[in-house]
Amino acid sequence: MPWVSRPFKELARELSGMTVPESKRRLQQWLQEHGPGGIEQLARGAADQHVLERPGLRSRTERMLQHAAEQGSIGLADDLLSSLDDDWGFDLDAVTAPTLLVYGAKDPIVPSTHGRWFKRRLRNASPTLAVLPRAGHMVIAPAWQRILQHVDPQHGDRSDV
């Protein structure tokens, strides 16, 4: 994947010669050494810090990260391993549901290049790529109403959710 950072690409080369269980163990070790971190790892720039000023969002995000780490780093390891390969057991051309790809233009972790890659491969899904110019990695917060509208056009415009 073209958006993967250089250190992670180097790790990926190391993992490529291992079995899945071996690669998960190695990746978990790598995550412990480099730490997935907390909210400061997700919210790196001014755009994300601004979003985290919304009432309750910082505390909800911190709780989510705590719960995500309760069983260690295996979930994050699985997620990261899936980003190293585009063979997920199905063909992206088989996806036909209308797809909304949402990215923050100021995201230093998962740039909109990621979305452009998916848009080219989701041809049968009528993909819409939305790159929010002032958003960072925490793009889900400013894009939430748009996401709800995409998922449920009749009810997605509710502001009381």
Rank of each mutant, 00 (worst) to 15 (best):
A143S: 11
W30Y: 13
G45S: 10
K119E: 11
S59R: 15
R116H: 13
G37E: 11
V110H: 04
R26Y: 09
D107Y: 07
E14D: 15
G89E: 01
D86T: 07
L84C: 09
D91K: 11
A12S: 14
I74M: 02
R25M: 06
P111Q: 04
L101I: 09
A105S: 09
A125H: 02
L80D: 01
R146P: 00
S159A: 08
W3A: 13
R63Q: 10
W30H: 15
H155E: 06
A135T: 10
T113A: 15
D93N: 07
V131T: 14
P111L: 05
R44L: 15
S23M: 09
P55T: 12
Q71R: 11
T113M: 12
E70N: 04
A94W: 12
S59E: 09
G75M: 04
L42A: 14
H50T: 13
T128G: 02
R134T: 15
S59T: 12
L84Y: 09
S83P: 00
A68W: 06
Q71V: 00
E10A: 08
D91E: 15
T61G: 00
A47T: 03
G35D: 09
A47Y: 02
Q154E: 13
A12E: 09
A130M: 14
P55F: 12
L65N: 03
M64V: 01
G156C: 04
R116D: 02
D157W: 11
L31N: 06
A47Q: 07
D48W: 03
L27F: 00
V4Y: 05
T96P: 06
L92K: 03
N124W: 02
F90R: 11
P98L: 00
H67K: 06
R13G: 04
V4N: 01
